[in-house]
């Protein structure tokens, strides 16, 4: 019991390799995976976060950090490599190019970081005569806009006047007078632009009629009339107007139907095509019947 009673540690005991209970526990703690991970990553992370928060707690320092960041950003953006100086528009005539310049009001030179190309493209494609646009920044500080124009395929006569439509029915431009585009077919009627594709098919089918055709009229926003000169009309059904028109043309070629004094060919009922004659023709037909058969 001498070792227990003696107050100080005997010198021999200093060489004792046995860990104290505390050191033993600490070592076991440090070998626990969770704690080791926490010490390795959690403590540095906490220290960094705490330091960062302490630094940012002061308003002046916060402003300083923000302004420094902004100035660095500015200095990068303003480098000459990123500046855009010229706007180049390709693929359209001068009037449309002028329109494009109007919708893209950019003060050059400007940093390419400040340009929102997608928005510029959207705005340009919002223009009527533009079918699609391709916006990019070319090396050398050029904002290159390649525009594809809509080509007019139809003339639409409405209450507002004459308008040019492309093959999808989209509005291309106002038209002063019909004579400016004598080659384009004419359509009329409410909402005729919505079915421009069908109109173009009908125009193609009516090509054998030649220059006798004056145009197409949309009736009641549901079916087409083909208007010929001499006031003749071919009234087409709602469904399958193109075969009906082709039928009329074939009959006309064989029987010269449209050369006769006919006011309208009514194809609205497919089983029962009807021909309406002009008043003169009816009267002369009556007279001929009287002459021939005495009323029979």
């Amino acid at each position: 019991m001498r070792a227990l009673k003696s107050s100080g540690r005997v010198k021999e005991n200093r060489a004792d390799p046995a860990p104290s209970r505390l050191r033993y526990r600490i070592q076991r703690w440090m070998l626990t995976p969770g704690i080791r991970f926490g010490l390795k990553f959690g403590v540095p992370l906490c220290l960094l976060t705490a330091g960062g928060l302490a630094f940012l707690a002061d308003e002046a320092r916060r402003d300083m950090v923000i302004s420094t960041a902004q100035s660095i950003r500015m200095s990068i953006e303003q480098r000459p490599e990123f500046m855009v100086n010229v706007l180049a528009i390709d693929g359209v005539g001068s009037s449309v190019a002028q329109d494009v310049r109007e919708v893209v009001p950019i003060d050059f030179p400007i940093s390419s970081f400040d340009l929102d190309l997608a928005q510029i493209r959207e705005e340009i494609e919002g223009l009527d005569p533009v079918k699609s646009a391709d916006v990019r920044i070319r090396p050398g500080g050029v904002l290159q806009i390649d525009v594809k124009e809509r080509s007019p395929a139809l003339i639409w006569r409405s209450h507002e006047g004459l308008a040019l439509l492309d093959e999808t029915g989209a509005h291309v431009a106002e038209l002063g007078q019909r004579a400016m585009h004598p080659d384009l077919p004419l359509i009329a009627g409410e909402a005729a632009d919505l079915v421009a594709e069908e109109a173009l098919q009908l125009v193609a089918a009516a090509r054998p009629l030649g220059d006798r055709m004056r145009g197409l009229v949309r009736i009641g926003e549901r079916r087409w009339d083909v208007v010929l000169d001499r006031g003749q009309r071919i009234m087409l059904p709602v469904k399958d107007p193109v075969p009906a028109l082709e039928r009329v043309i074939v009959v006309s070629e064989v029987q010269d139907l449209l050369e006769r004094d006919v006011a309208a060919v009514d194809m609205r009922l497919g089983q029962r095509p009807t021909v309406r004659m002009t008043k003169n023709a009816v009267e002369s037909w009556w007279r001929i019947r009287e002459l021939n058969g005495g009323g029979l």
């Binding site: 004792d16 046995a18 860990p19 209970r21 070592q27 076991r28 070998l31 626990t32």
Partner: peptide, 18 residues
């Protein structure tokens, strides 16, 4: 107990696991 602690601690240190 001290001797056991010594042995276990050294072995744990070598193994690197608790």
């Amino acid at each position: 107990e001290r001797a056991v602690r010594t042995a276990v601690q050294a072995a744990q240190k070598m193994a690197g696991v608790r």
